[in-house]
């Protein structure tokens, strides 16, 4: 059982209620309920709306996951749950439920780090991860570069966004172009008909002066403002806004910065594997450019399929399975929901 543990994962850190079940590195079930439609008219995730939706969705989503995997809670070896980082109230619903399942079924519980889970999910698709690896996590909630020495122990953050997350920039730009929410897939689609070189938008924190303090950090707030200014200037001049060109040029600015810094992180750490996760990893241009630039340096890029890149329970189960197989001690029943959980611990110590 140790090599191929049957692990259930619960994810409620943002607006997706996810329950996944894995056996070793094999995905058996990945049930998801999303409250994204309830947030659309607000242009972003409303924490209380997300928390309410999690509570409603948990039991039915669990049932779907168990049915899909053809197992019962009694068969499970361990339960893993996202302890943080994320929205405090949303995390708390998943953590409380996980404790209820663990208590009732008398199973060990692992409170795990959401970001580490985004990295671990790749093992379900591409097998064991060569360590060390560089992981780049980009979504509406995070934009981080991590050095992964040992996924069961600790992960070293190299850099993160100093303002907006990458996915947030997509949302904001989609909104100002009147394209809707969430912005990532919409911009990606809109950009296909545009010229990425038509407008020179800024690349945040890439100037030589930024290298000392912010070599692996990101900033997307200036880019977002630049897009807004450009669009407004057009509108004031009474000229039509070339939506596809703006989308393509904005997207190019984001993925240019992301891939440049990710490759730099690989090279400066002597690492040959780059894992990309988070919702923005589903961006088609990011995948192409990352592959292209990595290939020049012999770096292997691993990107899980889009459903595994966005938040889900499978990623939590994948990390849990890793921890069980490595003999890591489970967390205790008083494990907290920690909205600002740091990466120094991949799981809450027992």
């Amino acid at each position: 059982m140790r090599d191929e543990p049957l692990v259930l994962g619960i994810e409620t850190s943002c607006d997706e209620t996810g329950i996944g079940i894995v056996r070793g590195h094999t995905l058996l079930a990945d049930a998801l309920a999303s409250s994204v439609d309830q947030h659309a008219r607000f242009g972003g995730v409303v924490p209380e709306v997300a928390s309410r939706a999690h509570l409603e969705a948990l039991v039915p989503t669990m049932q779907r996951a168990l049915d899909e995997a053809g197992v019962t809670l009694a068969d499970i070896d361990a339960i893993a749950v996202t302890s943080g980082p994320g929205l405090a109230g949303a995390l708390l619903v998943g953590v409380a439920a996980a404790k209820g399942y663990a208590l009732a079924a008398e199973k060990p519980i692992y409170g795990v780090n959401h970001l580490a889970a985004h990295v671990a999910v790749d093992t379900l698709e591409h097998g064991p991860l060569p360590e060390p690896a560089i992981a780049m996590l980009v979504s509406g909630g995070h934009s981080s570069l991590l050095l992964v020495d040992d996924l069961t122990a600790g992960v070293t953050p190299l850099g993160a966004t100093i303002d907006d997350a990458a996915g947030e920039a997509f949302d904001k730009v989609a909104r100002l172009l009147g394209l809707g929410f969430p912005g990532g897939p919409i911009i990606d689609r809109s950009a296909r008909a545009g010229d990425p070189g038509s407008i020179a938008f800024p690349r945040g924190l890439t100037a030589p002066k930024d290298q000392a303090a912010h070599r692996f950090d990101f900033s997307f707030s200036g880019l977002k403002t630049a897009v807004a200014r450009w669009v407004e200037a057009r509108e004031r001049a009474g000229e039509p806004v070339p939506v596809a060109d703006v989308s393509a040029s904005f997207q190019e600015a984001v993925v240019d910065v992301l891939t440049t810094k990710a490759i730099d992180a690989c090279l400066s750490n002597g690492v040959g594997t780059l894992v990309i996760g988070g919702g923005v990893a589903a961006n088609s241009r990011l995948r192409v450019l990352a592959e292209e630039r990595a290939a020049k340096h012999g770096i292997v890029v691993r990107v899980p399929r889009p459903q595994l890149c966005t938040d889900n329970g499978a990623m939590v189960a994948a990390l849990g399975s890793h921890l069980v197989a490595a003999g890591v001690a489970p967390s205790r029943l008083d494990l907290p929901a920690d909205s600002a959980m740091s990466l120094t611990a991949v799981s809450v110590p027992g």
């Binding site: 209380e48 928390s51 309410r52 509570l55 948990l58 039991v59 669990m62 049932q63 809670l73 405090a88 109230g89 708390l92 619903v93 998943g94 409380a96 439920a97 996980a98 404790k99 209820g100 399942y101 208590l103 009732a104 079924a105």
Partner: peptide
């Protein structure tokens, strides 16, 4: 207060389902 209230209900619902 919602955040605390949900803890009890999520715990009760999950235990009921598991058992």
């Amino acid at each position: 207060p919602f955040t605390g209230l949900r803890v009890g209900l999520a715990t009760a619902a999950s235990m009921g389902q598991a058992l």
